[in-house]
């Protein structure tokens, strides 16, 4: 007979339905993200947007497309820094760049670029190493607002101190202040840094491969996926890289449990930099 469900079970069902509704209605697919962290952020959204439960939230989001960007702000985490984990960028500079130099032209993909912090870090590093001119950078994300921020190159002034320190610790050869102008509590990065950048809306969950990349940097995105989704994304990277191309992940991400681990060699183990096998 009908048994009363405890409250948290109903919540789980509502969350599953909400994610399904988002997928069917808007083609945003969060169904295979890590549940624990999606749940936490959806609870924040529900509270701060003032809904009594997820069914009510679902109804509004389905009927008012304007609500979608607001919800996406919760569902996609926009936490980033320039030269985050300076030792990663140092390893790229010291160990990967010498290999990249041997190519006459280069393609770099920053997947899940958020507001552009990681992208600008790489462009500056490439400029310092004299590789920028021969490189096309692809910066992709599913969050449109984040992509717009990335394209604007504008950041809050109070973040720049950390960026500067990170840049220095990464072995930066110039001064970060060479690349931006400060005004009204914000800094605006030089538009020439975007000369060779293509921004685009691309999902690692639902979209296809990019061609012939020499370096893919995808940091702190895979931790938000469950294992099968991580496999999909890594498969996408494998197919998008040239032979001997490089893949850089976040400090706490690895290919250890991946279905495609065998397709890569550890190139700089401590920094989670991998190289696609030649064969």
């Amino acid at each position: 007979m009908t048994e009363i469900q405890p409250a948290e079970k109903v919540e789980d069902i509502e969350i599953r339905l909400l994610l399904e509704a988002l997928y069917i209605t808007y083609h945003y697919d969060f169904r295979n993200y890590s549940i624990a962290s999606i749940k936490r952020r959806l609870r924040q959204a529900r509270e701060q947007m003032g809904f009594a439960n997820f069914s009510a939230l679902q109804e509004r989001v389905m009927h008012e497309p304007d609500m979608l960007p607001r919800l996406l702000r919760y569902l996609t985490v926009q936490v980033s820094e320039m030269f985050r984990d300076p030792s990663y960028f140092r390893a790229l500079r010291e160990k990967v760049v010498p290999h990249l130099r041997t190519y006459p032209s280069l393609k770099v993909w920053v997947a899940g670029c958020s507001g552009g912090e990681e992208l600008y870090s790489l462009v500056i590093l490439f400029r310092e190493e004299g590789l920028e001119e021969r490189t096309i950078f692809y910066a992709t994300d599913i969050n449109q607002e984040a992509l717009h921020v990335a394209e604007s190159g504008i950041f809050a002034l109070d973040r720049v101190r950390l960026f500067t320190e990170n840049h220095r610790n990464s072995g930066g050869k110039s001064s970060l202040s060479d690349y931006y102008q400060a005004a009204y509590g914000r800094v605006s990065f030089d538009k020439t840094l975007r000369r060779n950048v293509v921004f685009s809306d691309h999902s690692l969950v639902t979209d296809a491969v990019f061609a012939e990349m020499h370096l893919i940097s995808c940091r702190n995105v895979l931790i938000y996926f469950n294992r099968s989704l991580q496999d999909r994304a890594v498969g996408l990277f494998k197919d998008s890289l040239v032979r001997k191309g490089f893949l850089g992940l976040g400090a706490k991400e690895s290919l250890r449990f991946s279905r495609y681990a065998g397709a890569f060699d550890e190139f700089v183990r401590e920094e989670k930099i991998y190289q696609k096998r030649g064969a």
Partner: peptide, 21 residues
């Protein structure tokens, strides 16, 4: 928990890390 990451438990009893605020 590693420094600078949140540690979460998934319903299937595995661990997740996140770099949320």
């Amino acid at each position: 928990a590693p420094s600078d990451y949140h540690l979460l438990v998934e319903p299937d009893k595995s661990l997740s890390l996140s770099s949320d605020e």
